[in-house]
Design a protein around this nucleic acid. Sequence first.
DNA 1: CGGCTGGTTGATCACTCTCAAGCGTGGTGG
DNA 2: CCACCACGCTTGAGAGTGATCAACCAGCCG
Lengths: 243, 243
Amino acid sequence: MDGYGFRSLEKCAECPIRHRAVCANCSPDEFSVLEALKSYKTYAKGEAIAWAEIEMTHLGSIVSGFATLQRTMEDGRSQIVGLLLPSDFIGSPGRATVAYNVVAATEVVVCRFQKPAFEALLERSPAMTHRLLKMTSNDLEAARDWMLVLGRKTARERVASFLLMLAKRTYEDDDGLAAATEATVSIPLSRAELGDYLGLTLETTSRQISQLKRDGVLELVGQRDIHIKDLARLMDETCDDTA
Amino acid sequence: MDGYGFRSLEKCAECPIRHRAVCANCSPDEFSVLEALKSYKTYAKGEAIAWAEIEMTHLGSIVSGFATLQRTMEDGRSQIVGLLLPSDFIGSPGRATVAYNVVAATEVVVCRFQKPAFEALLERSPAMTHRLLKMTSNDLEAARDWMLVLGRKTARERVASFLLMLAKRTYEDDDGLAAATEATVSIPLSRAELGDYLGLTLETTSRQISQLKRDGVLELVGQRDIHIKDLARLMDETCDDTA
DNA sequence: CGGCTGGTTGATCACTCTCAAGCGTGGTGG
DNA sequence: CCACCACGCTTGAGAGTGATCAACCAGCCG
């Protein structure tokens, strides 16, 4: 379907991620340049969007789907170092390669630009540069938050932290999470991937989810969807003060 | 000594971090604006440069010394989520607070700017914005690298990874590390802080250093300086492919 | 129906944490 | 001048959390 399913996206003005992506603050002039340069590509679940140490030819934004950033060791150990959701940016301008693999966790549609062209555009567009700085700085903040999880939290706290983060991201647009007492989230990762994100084995991850279920904090709806019965309780379980 | 010891720094052209800090690509015009706005402040070892959730009045660059970024939990657990070395930038423009404490690990001299003035300047200076984007993106890369250490590595591998990173940073200017077989590094952190950086207890950290010493990989020179006898061996110990 | 994949659960093991004692150095005061 | 204390570091013994290895279960598809 490589592109053909997305004719409606050819106009940036109708793009679903228009107000949150790197192009959020662009002027009409800039949008017309972007529209001329962009192309869409669809990746199947499990497919690599970029590979560590391999030069990237394109940069771009996730339009739909989830992707993971994963760093692996020779002996097979692997750590997911980031999740990409719609509107997140793929690649670092000015850097030829990234140190991790970008893998589609679901089917993913990317709005892509040739790297040199995009970098040239960035040189001339303060709006995009500032937006990208803001996004990068948010990612840095999130990465550092997650370092606390990986370095200091117990297995149960890690799972709780993950579910809470997912709930926040899921409901961030309606910002109803502050008031809500319940929430339902869909986990876009397998237990093995979840373990790689949490720095745990898949068995420990599964056990902690079961335990939280037994303790009445949540309910499983199928294997990928989780209904959080008591959000306040879950927040306690994360042992985290950041509201 | 608040400033008086640094009269020689009043001219940016003579600043020791001039070619690596956020101002690296500034034009002469921009430098004269920076010179008018900047002020120096010295922090004693252990003093807070910024505090989580407390609004920052200034942004700036480390001129000399080391600082740590640390995120703490209510129950006392703490994780160091970054090290700031000379030329590193403190604070995020556009964000009122940061989620971690910035603490001087040694005596630290900071070249500071009032936050609103600096942000206004950044709006008008593509050179600084691009430089800051580059630096932020490097920090993000480093944070993600460290996530692999925290999530997947053993205690011994963590210590080895830390020493190797320190050696790289120490020798990065002479870039002689590629050829070198030995190196001497000075650890700017106590064992407790080191543990907080590695996601270990101070006891485990100490034990692993002793073990590496017993195995002939390194020698202690005092308690803070470490002579790495076999760099290649140390790289093996990190179990990391990134050269 | 049988094999395959992803998830759960169980038993055991090992690594790291916890608690505790001991060591060395540097500073203070009698 | 030296005894004493404080602090940071090291080392030891035992406990606990999560990893490992393995069996089992459910859903899916051929």
